[in-house]
Design a protein around this nucleic acid. Structure first.
Lengths: 222, 222
DNA sequence: CCCGGGCTCCACCCTCGGGCCGACGCCGCC
DNA sequence: GGCGGCGTCGGCCCGAGGGTGGAGCCCGGG
């Protein structure tokens, strides 16, 4: 065995189109990635529009793209490639890992986020992974993603009864007492009782604080 | 450049300890991964405790572990490995990609999440990536992560002025009009004006709804 | 120059929310 | 049986919250 980029068998070639507006980076990537076994760079574009054309023409396994480009930027290019050519995975290669475009890009369907600090091997590995359906992320990006996810604390923290939690969730939706009453098919007086009880237990004064509390404790209906 | 399992050159070996309570899986992994170039399985454990011992003994580059194990489970093992042996990355290999343990595991420092549907090559690639500091995720897991992240439209809310956004953020903290007034060093009347304005613009009735709105638009103070 | 928008303040009104009390039926537990 | 917690109601009070109208200031743009 041994062979291909990673692993045995026939050297499965991964066909790649890359996009970067900086000529040095572009030429460097073509050269470096071309030296890797299992990587076949079939096109290189200087902007998103040209990248889309190349993808349409060559139907590569992976598009490796920068984000900041003139014209069609990386996020938009990602969206369109994923929509028009589902067989082509997209890997983002950018300078800054802490970019606020992380979420938009991943939401657009990117299957990877690499820093330009990465060496050719790492990029090649990510390209193979993307072609195989795996996603590769820079650790900082992963940390950012994980940090962005809401709190794990799905447990009812204080001594709230199930009914009270239910009422709290509806308060968090912005419903009034009357609306909650109709939703739960009970009297508004009952709702007020529950509200007062859960306020006392959780140390809340407002229903605004209640919404805040609900969100911070993962009780919001997402 | 070039090298290791992915690529030519000197075969940089990645030393791996793996943990899985199912004997078949364990033995299968030892065999299959052992066949891959660049992968050196230096130990295999049937539970988390044994895995921790093996990691302490061999100081591997990567621990490849299942989550559901008797005794010390995968998440706890991940935490302890990351804390006690920062040089050892952890990759989770599990049956279900939609497990609710995704976030806890990644929060604990896991640098990867693979499905047992993955083939040996993919696992080997993820192990190399982990050893190199990259994270590899099953696409379903990445999708789940991205979906879990808030901020569906964190950018520009409605025609809210900066001041109004500021007031809204404080409302989301659960502060009363008076508290907001003192915080912003303005009159309470001013606060009420801002509140009424932003309510009208955003179509809100309650301050409860306002908190809801703020959270759903990423204006909450994290 | 005047106009418009943003920020600041004031006064008034009224509804809803929240605090407090008591009440009843239904459970499970001692 | 008695006790306590939970869920369900009712009534009362009152203050904060929300709605409306008006006013002044400063700034940038037509």
């Amino acid at each position: 065995m041994a062979g291909a980029a990673v692993g045995p068998g026939l050297p499965v070639m991964v066909r790649v189109v890359l996009a970067d507006d900086q000529r040095i980076v572009r030429d460097g990537l073509v050269t470096l990635l071309g030296l890797l076994p299992g990587i076949d760079v079939v096109g290189a574009a200087a902007d998103g529009g040209a990248a889309l054309d190349l993808v349409a023409e060559h139907r590569p396994d992976v598009l490796l793209t920068d984000l900041r480009m003139p014209g069609v930027d990386g996020v938009e290019a990602t969206e369109r490639v994923r929509a028009e050519h589902p067989g082509t995975a997209v890997v983002v290669l950018t300078t800054y890992v802490d970019d606020e475009a992380v979420l938009p890009a991943l939401r657009a369907g990117a299957a990877g986020w690499l820093s330009k600090d990465a060496d050719a091997e790492a990029i090649g590995r990510a390209l193979h992974a993307a072609a195989a359906g795996q996603a590769t992320l820079d650790p900082a990006v992963l940390a950012r993603l994980v940090a962005a996810a809401p709190v794990p604390a799905a447990a009812p923290p204080d001594g709230l009864t199930p009914r009270e939690v239910e009422v709290l969730a509806l308060i968090a939706e912005g419903l009034s007492n009357g609306q909650i009453a109709r939703r739960l098919v009970v009297s508004e007086a009952t709702v007020k009782t529950h509200v007062n009880h859960l306020f006392a237990k959780a140390g809340l004064r407002d229903r605004a604080q209640a919404v805040h509390y609900a969100y911070r404790h993962g009780l919001a209906g997402s």
